[in-house]
Simulated scan of single mutants.
Amino acid sequence: MTSLADLHTLMARLGHPVVQAASPAGTSFADGAPYRFEIPSVEGPAVLEAVVAEADRLGVPVARISQGSGVMMLTDDEISDMARIGAERGIEVNLFLGPRAAWDTGGQAKLTQAVGASARGNTMVAACVADALRACSLGIRSLLVGDLGTLEVLRALKEDGTLPANLVLKTSVLLPLTNGPTAAILERLGATTVNVGTDLTVPHLAEIRAATRLPIDLYLEVPDDQGGFVRFYEAVEIVRATAPVYLKMGLRNAPNIYPSGGHLGAVPRELGRERVRRAALVQRLIEELDPELAKRQPAQSHPSDLGVPEV
């Protein structure tokens, strides 16, 4: 096996040293893990079942799954089934709030993704709150938020007891986070885990880690509509700079399936399985490049900082 240090030594011997960016020592999750795997675009219970089965087959420790179509695109039974599976497996089930500007009657979101997840008007914020209340009543304890004002409203509802105090509020990649000051603002507004921009360098990520204690969510493979990067060989340096970090496995060369539904047939399930396979590839690479980092991964458990459903 060839470690990262071995590769750097080899490059230096060839006269082409790898210049490493200085980064702060990362911390870890509550269970001691420096990184966890998140499988995004798990759009319903059938996809979740496929993801769990593939994770078992490949030995991938999936800690969190996230859904992108939104709470309003799931029936009560579907949400309850996802909550049950998550509770049984100790997996955080994260559901997106909706509606959102990109699906609304406005025109700006049709021209730029920058406002695609924003809530147009107070009525839409209220609809996001309705989604949150419904999801939590069915056992969900993790929500994906794409609007800044909605985030602060949800924080207030957690503080007054309307929403569960242990509810995870995860910011969306559609809510741009590209620097330390913005990370600090999101933390003050109530975020409990933050999704960063897909194109940030390791020094950029280290700056964000220095500005917040929150877990960072980062795409190692990025969907085409978010840049389409594949950053597998950066995984070790990213973890070192950003731990605790959720490594998100998107897919290049894959269809956009939002909003999902039965009309897409087996496509969402197959995409879910492939995302797990990508995670297995990254896990193997981390074990080869930095065996000590890989050894810090604890056995599958129910750590206190995961938003595992309560059913």
Score class of each variant (00 low, 15 high):
residue 299 A to F: 00
residue 174 L to C: 11
residue 160 D to E: 10
residue 159 E to H: 06
residue 26 G to K: 05
residue 162 T to A: 07
residue 90 G to A: 06
residue 227 G to A: 12
residue 31 D to T: 15
residue 242 T to I: 03
residue 95 L to Y: 05
residue 107 G to S: 11
residue 133 L to R: 13
residue 65 I to S: 08
residue 206 A to N: 01
residue 199 D to H: 13
residue 106 G to Y: 05
residue 105 T to P: 02
residue 254 A to H: 12
residue 6 D to I: 05
residue 283 Q to T: 06
residue 51 V to P: 00
residue 38 E to N: 10
residue 237 E to S: 06
residue 78 E to L: 08
residue 107 G to F: 11
residue 282 V to I: 15
residue 133 L to T: 12
residue 241 A to K: 03
residue 299 A to Y: 02
residue 25 A to W: 09
residue 180 G to L: 06
residue 220 L to F: 14
residue 102 A to C: 09
residue 88 E to V: 06
residue 26 G to V: 08
residue 19 V to C: 06
residue 71 V to G: 07
residue 170 K to V: 14
residue 226 Q to H: 11
residue 170 K to D: 15
residue 47 V to F: 04
residue 5 A to L: 15
residue 122 N to T: 11
residue 242 T to F: 01
residue 243 A to K: 02
residue 68 G to T: 13
residue 14 L to N: 01
residue 39 I to A: 13
residue 22 A to K: 11
residue 189 L to T: 02
residue 82 M to F: 06
residue 102 A to H: 11
residue 279 A to D: 01
residue 234 E to N: 14
residue 224 D to K: 03
residue 169 L to Q: 02
residue 310 E to G: 04
residue 308 V to P: 03
residue 179 N to K: 13
residue 153 V to S: 06
residue 228 G to P: 01
residue 7 L to K: 12
residue 267 V to P: 00
residue 78 E to P: 07
residue 53 A to R: 03
residue 90 G to S: 09
residue 25 A to S: 14
residue 46 A to T: 08
residue 149 G to C: 09
residue 68 G to W: 00
residue 161 G to V: 15
residue 144 L to Y: 12
residue 264 L to E: 10
residue 268 P to L: 04
residue 43 E to T: 03
residue 78 E to K: 08
residue 291 P to A: 10
residue 112 T to K: 02
residue 193 T to I: 12
residue 14 L to H: 12
residue 113 Q to E: 15
residue 116 G to N: 09
residue 281 L to W: 09
residue 199 D to P: 04
residue 195 N to W: 06
residue 230 V to H: 13
residue 232 F to N: 09
residue 50 A to K: 11
residue 289 L to F: 12
residue 283 Q to K: 12
residue 53 A to W: 00
residue 182 T to L: 10
residue 301 S to R: 09
residue 193 T to S: 08
residue 58 L to D: 03
residue 232 F to D: 09
residue 243 A to T: 00
residue 242 T to N: 06
residue 299 A to L: 03
residue 72 M to Y: 08
residue 110 K to Q: 13
residue 290 D to Q: 04
residue 211 A to E: 00
residue 270 E to R: 14
residue 6 D to F: 03
residue 200 L to N: 05
residue 126 A to P: 01
residue 231 R to I: 10
residue 128 C to G: 11
residue 179 N to W: 02
residue 173 V to D: 03
residue 27 T to G: 14
residue 215 P to D: 07
residue 14 L to T: 06
residue 280 A to M: 02
residue 17 P to Y: 13
residue 90 G to N: 01
residue 302 H to E: 11
residue 156 A to Q: 10
residue 10 L to E: 08
residue 280 A to K: 14
residue 53 A to T: 01
residue 187 E to T: 08
residue 41 S to D: 05
residue 88 E to A: 14
residue 247 L to Y: 00
residue 118 S to K: 10
residue 85 I to E: 09
residue 203 P to F: 04
residue 156 A to L: 14
residue 241 A to Y: 10
residue 126 A to T: 05
residue 196 V to G: 01
residue 35 Y to G: 00
residue 310 E to A: 11
residue 178 T to P: 05
residue 46 A to Y: 01
residue 306 L to H: 02
residue 194 V to S: 07
residue 51 V to I: 05
residue 227 G to S: 07
residue 39 I to P: 05
residue 181 P to N: 10
residue 307 G to Q: 13
residue 58 L to K: 02
residue 215 P to S: 08
residue 171 T to D: 02
residue 13 R to A: 14
residue 291 P to E: 12
residue 177 L to T: 15
